[in-house]
Amino acid sequence: MVSIMQDAMLELHDVSYHWPGASQTFGPISQRIAPGRFVALIGPNGAGKSTLLKLIAALWRPDTGEVIVNHQNVLTLTAAQRARQISFVPQTLDTSFDLTVREVVELGGLNRLSWRDRLQFRPSVSPSQLESTLRRTEVWHLQDRAFTTLSGGEAKRTLLACALMQEAPLLLLDEPTAHLDPGHAMKFLDLVRAKVDAGELTVLMAYHDLTTVGLYADELWVMDQGQLILTGAAADVLPHPMIRQIYDVDFIPLVHPRTKRPMLIFP
């Protein structure tokens, strides 16, 4: 039992929730993610993917059960402690204030500020760490631009830079490539995959594109109507009849000609 516990970055124990005013309930869900895995959460609109991410990030409190990240119940952590374990790239961000890219990314270091740092006239992250993150996410040349003036791809990369700056082992992504063109989408996912391969991150990503999901994720979790109905390796899950059933589409399973990874395409 102990050895199994040490193996999990994320554990969900009987997590359930009910949306205020809705008859449908969410869960109970029990599942785990081993460190260094890239897991994608798929399922139709309204299946509960975003809800699961919000429960893990302690934005909402589950009715029953617990969310354990790195052996700690997320609800017992302080806000700063939680931000050192979990980072989150949201689907969209709506702000009417012109913070620059640099100022947004610096906020990733907020959770490490001591009271002395806060009282002094001092930035929240070291310049060298800031520079390497800005360069790796290819937003270095945008650092003095206002966040509100960025294109979709640039804004997403900035939010990823901000999340990476938190140096949290678990990264949650909520449909990160929605509204991105294929070029930007691929670069974004390549970047995340590289961090996973380097052993720096464990990822749980809500995602919609069944053609590309198997190219990046090791493992798939399938959700429908608030329930986790199927989990497993991408190669086993994608061809499963259940997928056709929940989307009501006869997808054609394929194998990527070069990487041999599984894909589903429209019939």
């Binding site: 979990i86 702000t95 990733g108 938190q166």
Partner: peptide, 19 residues
């Protein structure tokens, strides 16, 4: 710093570690 984070919305501030 926390006020800067709040400019990005309450949800994002939460994720960044603002109580």
């Amino acid at each position: 710093h926390d006020m800067n984070a709040l400019l990005l919305g309450e949800e994002q501030a939460h994720h960044l570690g603002v109580p």
